[in-house]
Structures are given as structure tokens and as C-alpha cells.
Design a protein around this nucleic acid. Structure first.
Length: 528
RNA sequence: GGGUCUAUGGCGCAGCCAGGUAGCGCACCGGACUUUUAAUCCGGUUGUCUAGGGUCCGAAUCCCUAUAGACCCGCCA
């Protein structure tokens, strides 16, 4: 095998950082501070995909630092975007604000300065919770401070060339007719309805007319106002097709990942950056969108949104970081039911990191260890955490709903999984409990019972219902099976199927005592 | 119309992005232990790694073509 030099920690993140550095060196740009960017949507409830964009960008920042460069992550909220439709579950009163920049819409929950800030805060909170550090920027401030005015000017001067190029690159003809700039209408405060047709270069003003426009399948009424907007003073924004380029240039961004849904926009922006603004575009990596289990795009209206906050109720932050750092390629169908295996997988890579699991392929070992370090944001713990199979925890929390913490802890000690009650484990019990309460609803499954089994089951129900506690339930079950010509093995299986919905389970005697024998008798009797 | 991704034992998937013996979970089957029970241990099948070509000493992995499915774009941000 050709020995490849391992870059950084050996993961795709390191490879990406190294490609970025190679490119920057070729371009000969200053590398004193390498900025990476992540755009945060501010129009809807931010889901795990939005979080992933920032988390991965942060990973690149870490990789760059690890390779000896200074770097920072800019988290940029697109809060000058207009509200296109009211997301599912939000007050209908927002309807009147459709078309307005989200930073100019009041926060329906009243806790932030605007609707847009409310949404961004949810994402920022998610980032804080998983330990991602960032510099926060807002579109509304960026425009108000005039940070993009020179770029806007250059872009508008070249609007014909850009319009043609957009049409050529992505087949969108709109900008051959209109300027790629949306003023906020001075009369009605709306974006998009005000279509700009002419740029007066000397005065740095665009002429616009506010008229009806279609967003999605909805018509938005324009107010008919005709006016001129000063791009240096009045509020307005560049169209997405050219806006990134202006922003990259203004903030000196060297890297930004993007989802495949905005691939076309990135393509155009790269060209605008290189050819119009004459600033080399940032290095990119494209990622697939997270899809739900049916392969559908995650969208608010379908109600399949996975937010960081929701995820953290059922899994820890390591499980999110593992999900996002383990790989970037490939379409992913994602659901909360991926949490248990990610929780377990973290334990596995931790064991690998601490040498308790042997991996013979050196490159793979390096990569796994590297992944572990990234999941710990390149600050891995000195010692391993306590490992408990997450599915076991879910099973146990499913069984114990009252005094859950104590009783599950006791079981874990009985099973020899842990020696003493630990606070670290309490947290796990709590989130596993949330998971089982929410998702692992016990379904009544069809269990095939022949007559002999039924007879045996009936005997067992009677035994369990008896006033005095049978001395040894385990033995009782065994005896009943034998006395009724049922294979004990099969009988146990039936019991597990009824009680747990699986064909196996914990030792059943003590288990029945744990749940409550009368309760079990009741459940079993439903199958007679 | 343009683009991206996916295709691996019965099922679900990992491995692919830095090529080096095809793996995991579940299911199933057989065996060890006559009360074994989140059981444990041992063994197991026929995986043409979707098809065809290419590069290479070597390809599930890289390149090209094809087929099927999914998604994105062609409103807008």
C-alpha cells in the first residue's frame, strides 16, 4: 500500500481543511485569520440540517486550527429575507406580515426583538448546547451599516452581464428583466413585491414599483408605490443569486458548506465573486439534505422537523455531533429512532480511542480516533465515560415509570453494568426515559396461541392473581409450562412477546415482580 | 429540461469521500447447558457488493456508461 501521509486527524474534515489551505496558498491570500461561514435561516424553525451546516463549518475551523492556523466561524443570520409563508404551528396573525423582512416582523412570542431573531435564537441556542462557538452576524445590521454597499454598486452596474449569466448557468431568466436587488417598499415595508428595473449608477439609486407578486402559490398584494431606493441608505437586499458573493467578499470568507438545494445559487455566486467582484470565491463542500424516514425532505409543514432542542431531550450532544461529523456525503434518512444507535456508537468510538477495542487497519484506527476527537470538539476527555447500552436503558425506562431513576439504577447495579449509582447515569436515564415515553409506546402485537399454550397461560394468570405472592414466579412459570405440555422455551417466548413485544427479555420471574404481578396478569388475560 | 445522491447476505445497514482478506445488527437454522431468560457460548448458509467497461500488482471503494429509485433546482430566499 502506498503510504499516504495522514493529514491532521485523518477525517474528511481534515482533508477538507487541507484542500482549502492548498487552494489559498495557490491564490496567495493572507492566512492570518481564516474565516469560515455558516448561513442561518431565519424564516422558519431551524432543524438539525441548519445546525449541521454550522457544526460542520465549526469542524473545519477546528481542523484549520489544528493545522496551525487561526480561524473563526461567522454565523450569519439571513434575517433580512422576507417571510414567504407562515410556518406550521405559528400564529395566523403573522399572515399580515408576509413579504416583510423577518427582522421587521414582531416576535409572536414576544421574547425577542423580531420574528427573525426569535428563529435565529433557536439555532444559536442549539449551537450553544452542543458547544459550538461562533461570531454572530445579522443581515439587517450588515445592510444597515452599509457593509455591502460597494458590492451592491458593482453588482448593479453589471446587472445585464449577471442576468445573462444566471440565465446561462441555471436557466433562470428573471434577472434579465429585473435587477438582482430587492428594495423594501417605502410604503408597505415589503420585499419582493418591489421589483427594481433600473439602476441610476450616479445616484446609487434603484427605481422600483411595488406590485403584486407570487410567492409559492400565494399572491402577495403590492401597494402600487413607485419610488427610488438609495442602496447606501434605504433598506433593501440583494437577491440570493448574488448576495453570497457580496457577503463573502465583505467578510473575507474562505469556506462555506452548502446544501444541495442551493447548489445553483452557489454556482452563480461563485461566478459573481470571481468575475464581477474579482475576489476568489470561498472553498466549498456540498452536503445532502437530511430526509425523513420516508425519504421526504424535512419540512415544517409535514411536521417531521427535528430540532436540536428536541433531539437533546432524547439523546446527548455527542450523539448529534457524531451524526454530523461521521460523514458529510450521502443522502441521509434521519429520525429520532437513530438516536439509540448513535448513543451506542459514541461509546464504541470512545472505546476505540482509549484502546479497548482493537482496530487492525492503522488508517481506520486513526480516522476513528480522529472522529472521536472531533465529536469532542478536539478536546477529548482524559477518561472514558460510563458506558451503558442505550437500548437497555430504553427498555428499563419503559418498564419503570414510577421512581424511575432509583429503580433503573438498581437494575443496572443488579445486572452488573455499573457498581454504584452515578450522577452521570442519572442524566442518561432521564433522556432514555424521555425517549421511551415518547416513542417506544408499547404496541399490542398479535401473538399466535394454540390451545395448550392458552391453557397454560390461563393457569399462569390465575397463579399471578392469587392473593398470596407465589414464592418463586420463575419456577412457577416453568412448572406450569411442563405440566401443560408446553415447551418452557416456547412458553417464555410467548410471555416476552405479550409483555415486551420481543421474543426475549430479562429474567422473567423477578421482572414480573418488578412490573407488578397483578398488572401482568391483567395484560396476559387479554390474550386468552 | 438541468443536477445530486442511493443501489452490499432474508430484512435493516456500515464499509466507499485517503483502494489491500466483505462486515455489523436483526431474523432464521443447528449444536452446547435437562430452571438457559437484556441468557451465554459454538457453528451456519448461496452476499456475481445493481449491470457493463476502464485504471491498478490489487476495486464494494477511483473513472466512464447503463438501469432503477429518491431528492433538489427550473417560484423565492
Amino acid at each position: 500500500m502506498v503510504q499516504e501521509k495522514i493529514i491532521g486527524k485523518g477525517t474528511w474534515i481534515d482533508k477538507l481543511a487541507s484542500e482549502l489551505l492548498e487552494r489559498e496558498k495557490t491564490l496567495g491570500r493572507n492566512l492570518d485569520l481564516i474565516r469560515v461561514e455558516s448561513g442561518l435561516g431565519a424564516s422558519g424553525i431551524p432543524h438539525i440540517g441548519s445546525l449541521g451546516d454550522a457544526v460542520r463549518a465549526y469542524g473545519v475551523k477546528l481542523a484549520l486550527e489544528n493545522l496551525g492556523y487561526k480561524s473563526e466561524l461567522i454565523a450569519y443570520s439571513d434575517d433580512l429575507d422576507g417571510l414567504r409563508k407562515v410556518p406550521e404551528g405559528l400564529p395566523d396573525s403573522l399572515q399580515e406580515h408576509i413579504g416583510k423582512p423577518v427582522s421587521l416582523i414582531p416576535d409572536p412570542y414576544g421574547c425577542h426583538d423580531s420574528y427573525g431573531m426569535h428563529m435565529s435564537s433557536i439555532l444559536l441556542d442549539g449551537l450553544d448546547k452542543v458547544g459550538i462557538k461562533y461570531e454572530f452576524r445579522r443581515a439587517v445590521d450588515t445592510y444597515k451599516q452599509g457593509l455591502l454597499k460597494d458590492h451592491i454598486h458593482t453588482i448593479l452596474q453589471n446587472s445585464v452581464k449577471i442576468g445573462d449569466k444566471i440565465s446561462e448557468l441555471v436557466g433562470q431568466e428573471k434577472y434579465q428583466k429585473y435587477l438582482p436587488y430587492f428594495p423594501v417598499c417605502a410604503e408597505c415595508n415589503r420585499l419582493y413585491t418591489a421589483e427594481a428595473t433600473e439602476y441610476i449608477s450616479d445616484e446609487k439609486k434603484v427605481k422600483y414599483k411595488c406590485h403584486d407578486t407570487e410567492i409559492g402559490s400565494k399572491m402577495i398584494k403590492g401597494c402600487g408605490h413607485e419610488g427610488e431606493a438609495d442602496i447606501t441608505k434605504d433598506l433593501g437586499k440583494l437577491a440570493w443569486k448574488v448576495e453570497f458573493a457580496a457577503r463573502w467578499s465583505a467578510f473575507d470568507i474562505r469556506f462555506e458548506a452548502y446544501g444541495k438545494d442551493i447548489m445553483d445559487s452557489v454556482k452563480v455566486n461563485d461566478w459573481v465573486s470571481d468575475e464581477i467582484l474579482k475576489v476568489p470565491h470561498p472553498h466549498h463542500v456540498k452536503y445532502e439534505m437530511f430526509l425523513d424516514k420516508g425519504g421526504k425532505k424535512i419540512s415544517k409543514s409535514l411536521g417531521n422537523v427535528i430540532t436540536a432542542q428536541k433531539w437533546l431531550e432524547y439523546g446527548n450532544s455527542k450523539s448529534i455531533l457524531l451524526l454530523l461529523y461521521k460523514r458529510i456525503t450521502g443522502a441521509r434518512e434521519l429520525g429520532f429512532d437513530d438516536i439509540p444507535s448513535l448513543m451506542n456508537e459514541y461509546n464504541e468510538i470512545e472505546d476505540t480511542y482509549f484502546g479497548r477495542i482493537k482496530v487492525d487497519n492503522q488508517a481506520k484506527l486513526t480516522k476513528l480516533k480522529g472522529l472521536y476527537e472531533y465529536v469532542n470538539l478536539l478536546n477529548p476527555p482524559k477518561q472514558s465515560s460510563i458506558h451503558i447500552n442505550y437500548r437497555l436503558l430504553i427498555e428499563l425506562t419503559k418498564i419503570f415509570k414510577e421512581d424511575r431513576n432509583e429503580r433503573v439504577m438498581k437494575k443496572l447495579i443488579d445486572y452488573g453494568v455499573i457498581k454504584n449509582p452515578e450522577t452521570e447515569v442519572e442524566k442518561l436515564i432521564e433522556i432514555a426515559g424521555n425517549y421511551s415515553d415518547e416513542f417506544d409506546e408499547q404496541e399490542k402485537i398479535a401473538v399466535e396461541l394454540d390451545d395448550t399454550s392458552k391453557k397454560a397461560l390461563d393457569k399462569l394468570v390465575k397463579a399471578l392473581q392469587a392473593e398470596e405472592e407465589p414464592e418463586d414466579i420463575q419456577n412457577t412459570i416453568y412448572q406450569i409450562a411442563k405440566a401443560n405440555d408446553v415447551q418452557p422455551k416456547d412458553f417464555f417466548k410467548i410471555l416476552y412477546q405479550i409483555i415486551l413485544g420481543t421474543s426475549r427479555g430479562p429474567k422473567i420471574g423477578p421482572f414480573i415482580t418488578d412490573i407488578g404481578r397483578k398488572q401482568v396478569a391483567k395484560t396476559l388475560s387479554e390474550y386468552l
